[in-house]
């Protein structure tokens, strides 16, 4: 036992370069597996927090006029500058998140509920199917933005009416999707087994059909949410959406339109907020589509 045996002495030295540090823990594995969900979710959550806590985020009254301080450039006092009536654009954009998110989420929910109901009825009542689907084809043949403008022209401009108008334009797509899913689920052996086990139709729909439509529905709902936010901004931009008294991103951009070439920041900041929010929702939708894909679900 005089010297160290050659084998031990020849043991390889530890590598100088360690493998890159991977994010650890449950959060880390989730981020590594679904980066788009993580990024989209964090951005959207940030936007939701901004909308909820708008009064606490160093904002002033977004409708307070100050004609003497109109069209100020962004500065330490007016972070995003002021518009031509001297209103603080940072406050207006922050409060505007409320309208966009409210419209986006409400339309996604309303269109999903109505579309799912019609899709299930259509998938289960074969006699009504062709009639319902022709009506849906008719609605879908009108570009959603035109349909929403037409509906807004019939009513008074309010957030509620905007939500209803955009939902009418969006729900036919959901009903189409759900009808297709229902038709394929009806042929599934587990549904046939449920029929053979004496399960009544309402319970089959509730326990066997609806839970299995959830994955494609969630993906579709996120896309509707994103497109509803854009549609709301367009409606406000052309003056057919929310009344000018409520700050929404579309309203702010509409008001800054005339000064676009000399004061581009009035349009720029609401546009950035809108882009980030729509991007976040779309990322979330893409991530969910991948995560909920049954072919990839086995990775769990």
């Amino acid at each position: 036992m005089s010297a160290i045996s050659p084998e031990i002495a020849a043991a390889p030295a530890l590598p100088d370069v360690l493998p890159p540090v991977k994010l650890r823990g449950k959060v880390g594995t989730f981020v590594n597996r679904y980066p788009t969900i993580a990024v989209g979710g964090v951005l959207l959550a940030a936007m939701v927090l901004i909308a909820i806590f708008a009064p606490l985020l160093f904002t002033v009254d977004p409708t307070a006029l100050a004609p003497a301080k109109r069209t100020r450039e962004p500065s330490a006092l007016y972070w995003f500058g002021t518009d031509m009536l001297g209103r603080d654009i940072y406050s207006r954009v922050t409060y505007g998140a409320r309208v966009s998110l409210l419209v986006g989420f409400s339309v996604a929910l309303l269109a999903s509920v109505v579309g799912t109901f019609i899709g299930v009825v259509s998938g289960f009542m074969r006699a009504l199917d062709s009639v319902i689907m022709r009506v849906m084809d008719g609605l879908m043949s009108i570009p959603p933005i035109l349909l929403a403008i037409a509906l807004m022209a019939l009513t008074r401009g309010s957030v509620q009416n905007v939500i209803i108008a955009i939902s009418v334009a969006e729900f036919p797509r959901v009903s189409r999707l759900i009808r297709g899913v229902v038709l394929s689920l009806r042929e599934q052996p587990y549904v046939e087994a449920a029929v053979a086990s004496g399960t009544r139709v309402p319970k089959i729909i509730w326990r066997h059909i609806l839970p299995n439509t959830l994955a494609p529905l969630m993906v579709q709902a996120t896309y509707i949410c994103a497109s509803a936010m854009i549609t709301e901004a367009i409606l406000s931009f052309i003056g057919a959406g929310t009344p000018p008294i409520i700050p929404s991103w579309g309203n702010i951009m509409a008001e800054g339109r005339a000064l676009w070439q000399v004061k581009p920041f009035i349009v720029f900041f609401p546009a950035v907020y809108l882009s980030i929010t729509v991007l976040a929702v779309n990322l979330l939708g893409d991530g969910l589509r991948d995560a909920l894909d049954p072919r990839l679900a086995k990775r769990l």
């Binding site: 599934q188 052996p189 587990y190 046939e192 087994a193 449920a194 053979a196 326990r207 066997h208 839970p211 299995n212």
Partner: peptide, 11 residues
Amino acid sequence: VVFQDPFSSLN
């Protein structure tokens, strides 16, 4: 009834 495919016959 017992179906062929044990994967699609259970919800």
